[in-house]
Amino acid sequence: MMTTLNELAYTRSGDKGDISNIGIMAFGPAEYEALRTWVTPERLRSFFAGVVLGPIEVYELPRIQSLQVVLHDALGGGATQTLRFDETGKSMAALMSRMEIPTALLTNGVTG
């Protein structure tokens, strides 16, 4: 069984140059653990294939049960030169929220 990230967390994205970042804010401890396990640079690389061309980093903020995803070469050159309608990648967070995540990660969660 799979669920979507949208069911586990809020997301919001912003930009700096050609870097898009997505804040992922888990609804609770179990969701945070599941996301921490599942949302890796490798999975994001295949998830954002064709959109994100550069390196990907994921940072953990356990005190606010959130992840910070940083996507390089993600906005077609950045707001001032991109051909994207969404020059600043505000909608990148919405794409992120579609990611599928196994529900087993939640039921087996350590602190659920």
Binding site: R12, I19, N21, E57, Y59, L61, S66
Partner: peptide
Amino acid sequence: IKEHLLYETHNPT
């Protein structure tokens, strides 16, 4: 506040 702490901040440390 969380969503703004994360907004365009990249490496949080």
